[in-house]
């Protein structure tokens, strides 16, 4: 059962995959009222059919589906396309969230969520789908921070930021994907390589050091929310 909800025909199309009918109807109504075209699906099978047929601009997938694991939907969609995927999961399932993100999901929201939070996430994921992090010469900008991967220079405003090699790599990995939730595993692979060393446990300490060094050059607190932690999952750099 998948039917088109009323909505502006011009808005982005969302595929909402959720097995609980009450929740699905309510969320669909809310999204439609915000100008999205909403296609609903109650099972993984319906979701894949609807995805083939309607080619939505974004998938909103609940990970607890009756017929199949929601992650299998993520994998299938990711194998065939780059459509952004937002997964919905219960609190306390951090491992499941990490699994979905590593399988190719772009972000997650935790149930129960408020509609403001959901809209913010959807907007961020959609914006990112078209966004470009680096300028033509390859320098990455985010607010007053600029990072030049070639010269290994980081500037906060006019000040040069002194980072160790690992701190630099971590910041680079995060800044390259503004707004995207980067899992701990992805940071580890990018910075330490496949062969993790002892110090991989210190990834959070490295991130703390980066934040501290940036904060020291940011007396007005403009960059306080530059790097946000998602406990148990990973880190997110605010959208540029």
């Amino acid at each position: 059962m998948s039917d088109r909800a009323p909505g502006s025909p011009d808005g982005p199309t969302l595929l909402l995959v959720e097995d609980d009918e009450g929740t699905r109807r309510e969320v669909a109504r809310n999204l439609a009222a915000h100008g999205y075209r909403v296609v609903e699906a109650a099972t993984a099978a319906q979701a894949l059919v609807a995805w083939e047929r309607d080619r939505p601009d974004l998938l909103l997938v609940d990970l607890g589906l009756p017929d199949r694991d929601g992650i299998s939907v993520v994998r299938r969609v990711r194998r065939e396309g780059t459509t952004p995927i937002l997964v919905v999961s219960a609190r306390g399932d951090e491992q499941v969230k990490v699994g979905a993100l590593e399988a190719g999901a772009d972000d997650y929201v935790t149930k129960p969520f408020g509609s403001a939070e959901l809209h913010a996430r959807i907007r961020a994921v959609l914006r990112r789908a078209g966004g470009q992090a680096a300028d033509p010469v390859g320098v990455i900008h985010n607010g007053t921070v600029s990072l030049d991967p070639l010269s290994h220079q980081v500037h906060v405003g006019d000040h040069s930021l002194a980072l160790t090699p690992r701190e630099f790599r971590i910041l680079e990995v995060l800044l390259r994907e503004p707004g995207r939730l980067v899992t701990r595993g992805r940071i580890l692979r990018a910075v330490w390589g496949e062969a993790y060393q002892d110090q991989d446990h210190y990834i959070h300490v490295y991130v703390s050091q980066v934040r501290r060094k940036i904060a020291a050059l940011d007396p007005d607190g403009l960059l306080r929310d530059l790097i946000l932690a998602e406990p148990g999952v990973g880190y997110r750099v605010r959208a540029a």
Binding site: P149, L150, H152, A162, L163, T164, P165, R166, E167, F168, R169, Q199, Y202, V205, Y206
Partner: peptide
């Protein structure tokens, strides 16, 4: 955490 050397030149492989 043991402090890491600041030598940025080590990273010239990127």
């Amino acid at each position: 955490l043991e402090s890491e050397p600041m030598a940025m030149a080590d990273l010239a492989r990127v």
